[in-house]
């Protein structure tokens, strides 16, 4: 896959962040950015005919293993951020009865 296509995924995520008026949609926009970045990182190191980075499986030309190892970390980080953000938005809903940014942020302090 072309790195440019994956960068479009990142930009879609940023577009979502800059336009969505709903907390849940913002959480998913962050998730989309993250998926885009993960795909981008793996794609930039990929090339035609690259073998998997396991010694003994592919004899000659392997793809770079470092991005794959780093992206495992990013995936774990991303899933925890998503989980925490969703739990916070549940709590926001419990307190304000809505997950629209404008209504939630518009209330005076102390509800």
């Amino acid at each position: 896959m072309n790195p440019l296509l994956t960068f479009i995924v990142v930009l879609i995520g940023f577009y979502g962040l800059a336009t969505s008026k709903n907390i849940i949609k913002s959480v998913f926009s962050v998730t989309i950015i993250e998926s885009g970045i993960i795909l981008l990182f793996l794609n930039l190191g990929n090339f035609e005919g690259g073998g998997i980075p396991i010694v003994g499986e592919s004899l000659t030309n392997i793809v770079d293993p470092l991005p794959q190892a780093l992206m495992i970390t990013t995936i774990v980080i991303g899933s925890t951020v998503t989980a925490l953000a969703l739990m916070l938005s549940i709590k926001v809903f419990h307190h304000y009865g809505t997950v629209e940014w404008a209504e939630v942020l518009g209330r005076k302090d102390g509800e």
Partner: peptide, 9 residues
């Protein structure tokens, strides 16, 4: 480690 990704992390 044969799996180089595992070797790294």
């Amino acid at each position: 480690s044969r799996n180089l990704v595992t070797a790294i992390y």
